[in-house]
Design a protein around this nucleic acid. Sequence first.
RNA 1: GGCUCGGUAGCUCAGCGGUAGAGCGGGGGACUCAUAAGCCCUAGGUCGUAGGUUCAAAUCCUACCCGAGUCACCA
Length: 508
Amino acid sequence: MTALRPFYVTTPIYYISGTPHIGHAYTTIAADVLVRTARAHGPARSLTGTDEHGQKVANAAAAAGMTPQAYVDSLAPQWKELAPAFDARFDDFIRTTEPRHVHTCLALFEKMRDAGDVYEGVYEGWYCTHDETFWPEAKLIDGRCPNPECRRPVQWLSEKNWFFRLSKYNQPLLDLFRGNPEFLRPQSRWNEMMAILEEGLEDFSISRSSFDWGIPLPGGGVLYVWYDALINYVSALGWPEDPDGLFATFWPGMHIVGKEIARFHTIIWPAMLMSAGLPIPTRVFAHGWITSDSGTKIGKSLGNAMDPFAMKERFGADTLRYFLMREAPFGSDFSMSVEKLRQRHNSDLGNDLGNLLRRSLAMLQKYRNGIVPQPSEGAVQELTADLPARVHEHVMALRFREALDEMWNLVTALNRAIDEQKPWELYKHGRAVELDALLYDLVEGMRWLSLLLFPYMPSKATEIWTQLGLAGTPELQWADELVWGRLAAGTQTAPGAPLFPRIDPPAE
RNA sequence: GGCUCGGUAGCUCAGCGGUAGAGCGGGGGACUCAUAAGCCCUAGGUCGUAGGUUCAAAUCCUACCCGAGUCACCA
């Protein structure tokens, strides 16, 4: 395997005036699985945070009778709790109202201006005062605001703003997309962005002067919220001074985003970086959306089924993480429901995995007092030979489901080995060598699964580790640990409670 | 409306030129170490419709039907 460069992954920064929902949890969990897998191979870093500027926030703050700063301060905690609630550990959490971010934004703005890509221009269009929104002429309905709740007359407004010469980067972006199709995945998003690029890009305004909740610019006005937001990925690394060397070490990184914001991350953001002479992200992955399962009635007693916190309460963070990564190809939309979650929990996790650990340790306890026998060699060992490489490759390509499929092949193989070799008969007939070999295969196989599953289910993987009698956690380097026979003979295992207790359907 | 991507077993999907596949669910069987879990066997689906290309098409082409996405200086 080639040496891996330090790995950096980000979630989008979440718009603070919203409420965390399952989609945020999904992105956050995916980034966490990715970085935990990367960390098992070398240095890795992850970032999440909140996007706190813009007119919407200013309006909401005013409605709440608060200053914008006090308002965002009151909302930030619920976003900081999101990742920990799902056992996702980020190395940094950035808020766009922090001084370090403001500093980086202004530095980047200057750099782009020095490059001749920022100029003063007039931003004008049809403006609805009530909605505080500019509307394109084509959207207007009878010359009025197209918002069905509004429909007020609009007025022609113009304000002097800073513009970014995006048009200059049209061709470089086309070259980027054509030369590196992996830059944006999945393919469907790449196609869409190519269509936009082929239509041609126009310069756009990166400042606002009609309100002031944003990063203030010298000479007046504030930065447009999206321009400001995208920069978080490098401001969190300390660019441009880079006092801790984080930027030098980790940039460029990979962005995981929802498909709705692919445009900002794959057209505008790379153009900004090109203008500033900085490397562009290694890859942007635009994942799909989670829809509710229309066929399933949600009982009142279960609460709102799409509330990630409620789902976590019911199934645990690990089951929810597993479900989200296993249920659909990353990139596709998919639906979820309490019933689907319950089935994955009982079937994949309880029956296949949890029960495998339990029956393995029970037999080891019964036949060998729970003490690990001498390492075996044979079919299971061969099966595991290139498993870590395959899993790693899948995860780095964001194929989480396929990675789990690979692991489940091992789970199934171990369950099958028990049924085929019938250890209870081996024991009865005193065939100690064969019995020891099988028992070793089982516990060593479980050790491998613990290491491989750790990024997906940190808590349950650690429980497996502990029941195997191992100290610490399975958060270790794969190259060192995924070596057959590393589970030492003589290890005293410690069987515990079922890993995934069965969850019965709610009583009718 | 233009463009893009889909429409394959009850469900979720893989296959993408050479005699229809997986997982789940359903049905049957032998066992007992285990969370009545696991293991084995089983599913006969006109591969959206209609044409066409080919010795041969879920697999290529055309048209059409259905679904989704996208064509915004909202975030």
